Amino acid sequence: MKDYGIYGVFIAAFIGVLLYMNCTAMIPIALALTTSGIPLSVMMSFLIAGAGCSLPELVLLKRFFKTSFLVLFASAIVFIAICFGLLMFYI
């Protein structure tokens, strides 16, 4: 298993926000990446960020909400994903 370190949690959260992940496709993706050697902390950070907030979702929400709300929403999702990933990293 490769040691991705603490930076892997941060990188996975930001990559997860940029990708569109369907909730039904998350489990096979997580299983494939975990069996290939990705640590659980990085995987959980990636899955939470990808399922909670995605770039296409933000584009659609832009029609209804102000930009400041979208930034707050995306920041909250990334913050939660990073916190949970760090919690998994240290436990």
Rank of each mutant, 00 (worst) to 15 (best):
88 M>V: 10
77 I>P: 01
67 T>M: 14
65 F>L: 15
88 M>N: 03
6 I>S: 04
58 L>Q: 06
22 N>K: 15
25 A>E: 06
65 F>T: 09
78 V>L: 11
89 F>A: 00
38 I>V: 15
30 A>H: 00
47 L>N: 04
69 F>P: 09
13 A>S: 15
48 I>R: 01
40 L>A: 13
91 I>L: 10
6 I>E: 08
78 V>A: 06
35 T>L: 14
41 S>M: 05
72 L>Q: 13
60 L>S: 09
9 V>H: 00
61 L>K: 14
67 T>D: 06
57 E>R: 10
86 L>H: 05
11 I>N: 00
88 M>A: 07
88 M>G: 00
91 I>D: 05
10 F>H: 11
12 A>Y: 07
71 V>N: 00
22 N>T: 08
64 F>T: 13
13 A>L: 03
49 A>V: 11
38 I>D: 01
74 A>F: 07
80 I>N: 05
69 F>W: 14
6 I>V: 14
25 A>M: 06
6 I>K: 06
33 L>M: 15
4 Y>E: 13
41 S>V: 06
46 F>A: 02
89 F>K: 06
71 V>S: 02
29 I>S: 00
35 T>N: 14
25 A>C: 02
40 L>W: 11
91 I>A: 11
62 K>F: 08
54 S>K: 06
57 E>Q: 11
71 V>Q: 01
73 F>S: 02
